[in-house]
Design a protein around this nucleic acid. Structure first.
Lengths: 330, 330
DNA sequence: CTTATTTACGCAAACGATTGCGGTAAATTT
DNA sequence: AAATTTACCGCAATCGTTTGCGTAAATAAG
């Protein structure tokens, strides 16, 4: 069965295409009687406007592009979920592509977005992208780009991200409040600015407000590494009484070690992490964490996108604030 | 800056649009010299064909639609990841929409897909969709639909799903092998056919091959319900020694209870579940599970889609096989 | 040196919708 | 009765590509 078009409707009704088009969108030039007829036939024939023809004519698609390192990720998928919700509300659809942290994929994805003339792009830089030329190309096309999470340093870009330093500071505050004597602080890939920022903020805060608390810092790249690091440090003479995990991945490693060694939380060991909340809720007691919500970040990113689209150049950097969620592990 | 079009290239080169178009796609009618000139200018002007114009002309978009209940879900996101990989390889992009288990959203999503004239749709029915008329409408438009995971019963549809019965049977086998005396078997929403199938297969197998093993069956709709059910049954005189969790959600509830009560796994309690593997790997010891890979399901679904597109009507139902993954909880 | 055959390119009609600019009948005003 | 409005509607160009068909020039064949 062939798709119903304006032309078809026009023929059946003995009207011109333009009249049908106008009737369908309630144009004042068209009489009520005609409008009703048109609507009736359109309904019974299941008319669906061809989005491609519209875009071709109006030069504006109702599609946003999204680039994430990976869809299968607790943080990004909640980000996407948020964007999707907002997009639907505003009549947009989403085209989602993953970079797999590969700059080459990133490049290709951007190309697909350009060919589909997306209205805007939400982009999370892949881990080691330094060449932002590709994104310049989008600007040339007047396609707004909102960066999220992993964002470029340059201030000429629109970006939203978590308040990384605040996160680390809140964690530090709670560690001090617990009265921790010795702390093992586990961070992620030292090459990532997010790891650097969090560690720096954490360390500075601890040194300033709790100089007597002994902190050991370590960077690990996987759950397994975190687990190993935890066990290694525990076998030392001076045992630590509190552990800080910068990411879910690290927390997972830590918790495996804690379960394996049957360590009592929070009595024998305090645990705190930065997370969106899902992983911490898997354990008993729930792990206390500083919340970084991908969902909220998504909402914020969308606001930025809309502002950008409306015309105003929003070159600002917005951050979503962090808050402490009490579990029972401190 | 305005987008480069064929027309622009043609003007600058003093050629006709058709010649430029053909040169760009290496048509034999065009001389090598001309081709080179065209390519050179196209490159320097960053020509990107307008996907909308192409679709309008060729009546075929290079986009697949995907409907999932939720993107932020360990199973579906790996499914999506798989589809995305394959799509990219085949020159397709993805449009992803979530139904939030709301049939109304489902309807709207389908509409967006139709308006964007997607080449095909991957759909997971929302929990209580019974009216498949909407999907019929896609068939009318000759848009192939591949159902996955939660699929309609009717055999006229193309579907891929996990081998639900096999999963349950494999779990039962391992429970018998462990020599379990009393089993608590936790299943999901009884209204879902997936719950029914798994329970039925499980129960039949147990009754046939281990009639002396006492099994208690219960349906729970959330982690919390599972946790509560677990605790309730444990407080009875006859304690169970093995628990079977049909989904990750249920497993999470079970494990919270186990941690809270400090029950030793596997000595005091055997645990087995059906999962894609992520959640079971979070605990120590790793939970043994029957693998249902969203990723594999995605790959399979894509194969079906391609077959469907190539013309052959593939009305079959394919299932991805299940296998037991030894953790340490049995 | 005429006839075929290639080679290399251009014309123009689609695809489906939008929209400025008119146009014509009927209704209203002079 | 003539002039002017108003209400409705149609014409045709346009968005950027694709593609069947036509044709001049160049080459090959007779």
């Amino acid at each position: 069965m062939t798709n119903t078009t304006l032309k078809l409707l026009a023929q059946q009704l003995q009207l011109s295409i333009s009249t049908v088009s106008r009737a369908l969108k309630d144009h004042p030039d068209i009489s009520t009687a005609t409008k009703e007829k048109v609507h009736a036939l359109a309904n019974s024939l299941d008319y669906e406007p061809n989005a491609y023809a519209i875009q071709l004519r109006t030069q504006s698609s109702k599609i946003f592009g999204v680039i994430v390192p990976a869809i299968a990720n607790l943080f990004y998928d909640s980000f996407i979920a948020a964007i999707e919700e907002e997009s639907r509300k505003n009549g947009y659809a989403l085209m989602i592509l993953q970079s797999s942290n590969n700059p080459e994929n990133e490049l290709n994805n951007l190309k697909i977005f350009r060919q589909n003339r997306v209205s805007g792009v939400f982009a999370c830089l892949s881990a080691h992208t330094h060449n932002l030329e590709v994104y310049e190309k989008m600007s040339d096309r007047e396609i707004p780009v909102v960066f999220f999470d992993i964002v470029p340093k340059d201030n000429k870009y629109t970006k939203v991200r978590m308040a990384d330093e605040r996160c680390a500071v809140i964690a530090a505050e709670n560690i001090i409040q617990r009265g921790a004597k010795r702390v093992l602080a586990l961070f992620g890939d030292p090459a990532l600015s997010i790891s650097q920022k969090r560690r720096q903020a954490f360390q500075q805060f601890m040194e300033k407000y709790a100089p007597k608390t002994h902190c050991t810092y370590e960077h690990t790249n996987s759950s397994l590494e975190a687990e190993t690091a935890f066990k290694k440090h525990l076998s030392k003479i001076q045992k630590f009484d509190t552990v800080f995990a910068m990411t879910d991945e690290i927390l997972i490693g830590v918790m495996k070690a804690i379960q394996a060694l049957n360590i009592k939380v929070p009595k024998e060991m305090g645990v705190i992490s930065i997370s969106n909340g899902f992983i911490p809720s898997l354990y008993h007691p729930n792990i206390s964490y500083v919340e970084t919500s991908g969902y909220e970040l998504g909402k914020l990113a969308f606001v930025q996108m809309l502002a950008n689209l409306k015309g105003g150049k929003t070159l600002s950097e917005l951050t979503v604030d962090a808050r402490f969620i009490e579990g029972g592990s401190m």
